[in-house]
C-alpha cells in the first residue's frame, strides 16, 4: 500500500501513560522459584486426587501393620517391641488345619493350623522392605549412571548405553531368578539381585531427560559461566530431570514386590514356611487341586495373593497420580487465536 499512496505515518498514539502490567512478573520468577512452585503444584494435585489418597492410605496401613506385626530385634536388642497380630505367624496348630475364616481367625488357617491373618500381615515385611531398599539403591545408581552417560555424551555415552542394552536383553525376573539360584536366597541376596536388575531403567530415563534438559538455556548459561561439570549436573540438570525418575520409582516398588513374591512362589528366595506372600502361596497352591465338586479351601490362596494385589495396585495408583501431576504441567488449554 505504502508504495501506492505514500507512507503512512501515525502520530498521537502515545502509550507512555499506560502501565506495562505484564512485563514485570515475567522476569521475576527465577529458576528455583519455578521448581519449587512446580513441586508444590504436584503435591497439591495429588492431594486433590482422592483415589491416590486412598492408595496412599492402603500403602501406609499395610506397611505400618507389617512393621508392628512382630517385634524386631537387631543383635539381641529389641528395637520394635510391638506385636499387633493375634498369633505368632510361624506357630503351628493355633487352630484346626484349614479352618475357614472365622472371628478368631479372620482369614482362616493353613495346612499346619497357622493363623493366616497373622502370616499375611507379617508377610508384608519381606516384600515391602525389599521393594523400598531395592528402589532406593537402583534409583541412586541408575541416576548416577544415566547422568554421566547423558551429560558427557559422545564415546562415554556410546559405551555406557551398549552396556545398558546388554542388561535390557535379560528379562528382569529371569536375571534375578538366576542370580538368586546361583548365590542363594535370603533377604540381602534378594535385595542385591533385584537392585542389579532394576537400575537400568532409571539410567535410561534420566539419560533421556538429561538430553532434553541439556538443551535448556540455563544449563548452557551455567556452563558458559564456567560452572564445573559436577556442579552443573547436580545443581541444574538432575533437579529438572528427576520427575520421571520419581514416577518410575513409585511404580517399580510394586514391580519388585511382585518379583520377590514370584521368586517366593517358585520356591526360591526364602525358606519354606517363611510367612512371605509368595512363599505362602507356593506352600498352599496344592489346595487348588481338590478336584471338581470337592471343597476348595480358598482362603489359603486368595488372601496372600489379594494382599500382594492390594499393595501393588495402591502403589501403582499413587504412581499414576504422580505421573498425572507431572503431566499437568505441560497440558495446555486449546483456546485462543
Amino acid at each position: 500500500m505504502s508504495t501506492e499512496r505514500g507512507r503512512i505515518q501515525i502520530s498521537g498514539f502515545d502509550t507512555d501513560g499506560i502501565e506495562d502490567q505484564d512485563s514485570l512478573d515475567a522476569w521475576s520468577e527465577s529458576e528455583a522459584d519455578e521448581l519449587e512452585s512446580r513441586w508444590r503444584k504436584i503435591v497439591s494435585s495429588i492431594v486433590r486426587d482422592r483415589l491416590a489418597l486412598g492408595g496412599f492410605a492402603v500403602v501406609a496401613v499395610m506397611s505400618l501393620a507389617a512393621l508392628l506385626s512382630q517385634p524386631i530385634s537387631v543383635g539381641g536388642f529389641t528395637i520394635q517391641p510391638f506385636s499387633i497380630v493375634p498369633y505368632d505367624p510361624t506357630q503351628t496348630g493355633v487352630g484346626a488345619r484349614y479352618a475357614a475364616p472365622s472371628l478368631s481367625h479372620p482369614m482362616g488357617t493353613d495346612r499346619l493350623g497357622r493363623d493366616l491373618f497373622s502370616r499375611v500381615v507379617t508377610g508384608g515385611r519381606y516384600s515391602i522392605s525389599i521393594g523400598l531398599i531395592v528402589t532406593a539403591l537402583a534409583a541412586t545408581f541408575g541416576v548416577i549412571y544415566g547422568s554421566i552417560s547423558g551429560y558427557f555424551g559422545g564415546r562415554v555415552d556410546e559405551v555406557l548405553m551398549r552396556i545398558l542394552d546388554v542388561v535390557f536383553a535379560f528379562p528382569g525376573l529371569v536375571l534375578a531368578l538366576i542370580l538368586v539360584a546361583l548365590f542363594g536366597g535370603g533377604f540381602w541376596p534378594l535385595v542385591g539381585a533385584f537392585a542389579l536388575v532394576g537400575w537400568a531403567t532409571y539410567a535410561r530415563i534420566i539419560r533421556g531427560e538429561i538430553l532434553k534438559v541439556k538443551q535448556n538455556e540455563y544449563v548452557m548459561a551455567a556452563k558458559a559461566l564456567g560452572a564445573r561439570d559436577r556442579s552443573v549436573i547436580f545443581r541444574h540438570v538432575i533437579p529438572n530431570a528427576i520427575a520421571p525418575v520419581i514416577v518410575q520409582a513409585t511404580l517399580s516398588i510394586g514391580t519388585v514386590v511382585i518379583g520377590v513374591a514370584a521368586l517366593g512362589f517358585l520356591g526360591l528366595g526364602f525358606d519354606p514356611g517363611t510367612p512371605e506372600w509368595g512363599t505362602i502361596l507356593d506352600a498352599e497352591s496344592d489346595t487348588l487341586a481338590t478336584g471338581a465338586g470337592g471343597t476348595w479351601d480358598w482362603w489359603a490362596t486368595v488372601f496372600p495373593g489379594l494382599m500382594i494385589f492390594l499393595f501393588v495396585m495402591s502403589m501403582n495408583i499413587i504412581g499414576d497420580a504422580v505421573n498425572d501431576a507431572l503431566d499437568a504441567q505441560v497440558d495446555d488449554i486449546g483456546g485462543g487465536g
Partner: peptide, 15 residues
C-alpha cells in the same frame, strides 16, 4: 489396566 498391571501373574493363574 491398572489392575492388570498390579495383579501378580502366578496368583492370577492360580485363581
Amino acid at each position: 489396566a491398572l489392575s492388570g498391571i498390579s495383579i501378580p501373574n502366578f496368583w492370577l493363574g492360580l485363581m
